[in-house]
Amino acid sequence: MRPFTYSRAKSPAEAAAEAASAPGAKFIAGGTNLLDLMKLEIETPSHLIDVQDLKLDRIEPTAEGGLRIGALVRNTDLAADARVRRDYGVLSRALLAGASGQLRNKATTAGNLLQRTRCPYFYDTNQPCNKRQPGSGCSAIGGFSRQLAVIGSSKACIATHPGDMAIAMRVLDATVETVDPKGQTRAIPMADFHRLPGETPHIDTNLKAGELITAVTLPKPLGGKHFYHKERDRASYAFALVSVAAVVQPDGRGRVAFGGVAHKPWRVEAAEAAMPQGAKAVTGATFAGAAPTPENAFKLTLAERALGAVLAQARA
């Protein structure tokens, strides 16, 4: 870990302004991912701006009938919130499928969105990795890729977004609210929040320099049955091979997003029209153009069959 300076911001706008004025600064909230990465010198911020005093820890109803989740709401509290459990079950289930109780107690909503990939080559600083060190190459291509992306990847990177929460937020059409160093706010649809790796895999999201997440807003409830199925080798405390976040209406229509398959939550709205026809039709369209490695091609079958299980359960 490199030496760094530390400050505690008093308001979101001040935090953003400070981040813009201090090159190499990063925000820290729960620190469950950032601190590990700093110890390995994968992240080397020169300055940490602690945002824990910003009072962004409330879950409030919106005028549109949805919920506004403060950036600092802990994963544990969000998963347990009665309104979330009642109206956004997919989100509660996704949260509880992630990490461990101890980590969820510490991890925040904004931090969860910003967690970095778990590609093993990203974690080994002896190996080339374009995400860690732009231009150094991708060791994962041609290496151990069982866990990695099957679609939307590039010649520069086949990493995945490792989270669960964002997959549910994507299926719910959540929006990410931010404030920038000039005090300007904006709302970024979840669809546009995470990026595909392209030629710049070191950039995970479309946040601008210094821009701070203040909240995530959920639209009014969708109704229907909510599912989050996470397929993994062990029953808990493991990243998804494939996860399925779905909301299915009584008439069989619905929405679905997949985790563990791409650099961002993977949802193809046009493919959802096929939901009444069954899983194969949906995943065929959702994963058109997939480019798996020999080690992870099974994820395409797994995605189809996992969605099949969800749809069967929805009908039951």
Binding site: P120, Y121, Y123, R234, A235, S236, A238
Partner: peptide, 16 residues
């Protein structure tokens, strides 16, 4: 060995 930590090298947890 690529998966050289306890996130990558999985051993059973209680739920298993």
């Amino acid at each position: 060995f690529v998966n050289h930590d306890l996130a990558g090298y999985e051993v059973p947890v209680h739920a298993d």
